[in-house]
């Protein structure tokens, strides 16, 4: 089987994330991906996957694979990327997350708007509940629940001084089923290992955590047979000739 080399970006916000710029609309994200040669995306809004379907649809038209996902915030304020193969389990996960979010309205004047859009980027509705806050789920619960739905969990920006597994919990909790971690583009994997020796043995990926188009970079290169979660798991494990590089 011939393997593909796919520049990828697995941490990406749309206008559903209050902190994202208004340009983070499906057609513009896909156009930017095409411009940069990024061939594999994951959409990971804060505690929601309501724009995942729209980005998948927009990606399909351009031949760019999009995994539905989410950046969930645990009760320890740790950010975890949750990736799925299909929209259905991603939305099932969203339901569980919504049940564990406080029932508060979004304060647009403070946080910004949370927009649900279609594949053309047309406005559909506001998401009026507060998304950008902690769920009542622990790190361990998120791993267990996402894996039960067939998803993959990758701790986000572990080198950041807040909202990170290492900053908030100090050490990687023993017993956690963790194979990979995301680092910011601010440092190389070698520098990350030097600063955080606990990352040894994990596969490191780099994403732009893009809140604006200019933060998309496609610095993670993945060698897989096809852009599926099963293949990504193999690549993160370095198995069967699949592999991940940070470029």
């Amino acid at each position: 089987m011939s393997l593909l080399y796919l520049p990828a970006e697995f941490h990406l916000h749309t206008v559903l994330s209050a902190c994202a710029e208004i340009e983070m609309l499906p057609p513009l994200i896909i156009r930017q991906a095409q411009k940069l040669g990024i061939q594999w995306l994951a959409v990971t809004d804060h505690n929601s996957a309501e724009n995942a379907g729209a980005l998948i649809e927009a990606g399909k038209r351009a031949g760019i694979a999009v995994l539905p996902g989410m950046e969930v915030q645990t009760r320890e304020e740790v950010h975890l990327l949750c990736l799925f193969d299909e929209l259905e389990p991603a939305l099932a996960w969203q339901e569980q997350v919504y049940q564990h979010l406080p029932d508060l309205p979004n304060r647009e004047e403070t946080f910004g708007s949370q927009l649900v859009v279609d594949a053309e980027g047309e406005f559909l509705r506001f998401q009026e509940r507060l998304l950008q806050t902690s769920t009542s789920l622990s790190v361990e619960q998120v791993f267990t629940m996402v894996e039960a739905l067939g998803g993959l969990v990758i701790p986000a920006h572990v080198d950041r001084p807040a909202f990170s597994l290492l900053a908030n919990l100090g050490i990687i909790p023993p017993g956690l089923h963790i194979t990979a971690a995301e680092i910011t583009p601010r440092l190389t994997p070698a520098q990350a290992l030097e600063r955080f020796p606990q990352l040894a043995g994990l596969t490191l990926i780099t994403n732009g955590d893009a809140h604006r188009l200019s933060e998309m970079a496609g610095r993670t290169l993945v060698r897989v047979a096809e852009p599926t979660l099963a293949e990504l798991r193999l690549a993160l494990a370095g198995a069967d000739g699949r592999k991940v590089w940070v470029t």
């Binding site: 304020e77 001084p161 807040a162 290492l166 900053a167 908030n168 919990l169 100090g170 050490i171």
Partner: peptide, 8 residues
Amino acid sequence: SDLLSCVM
């Protein structure tokens, strides 16, 4: 502190 890295 609630940041365990700071505690460490």
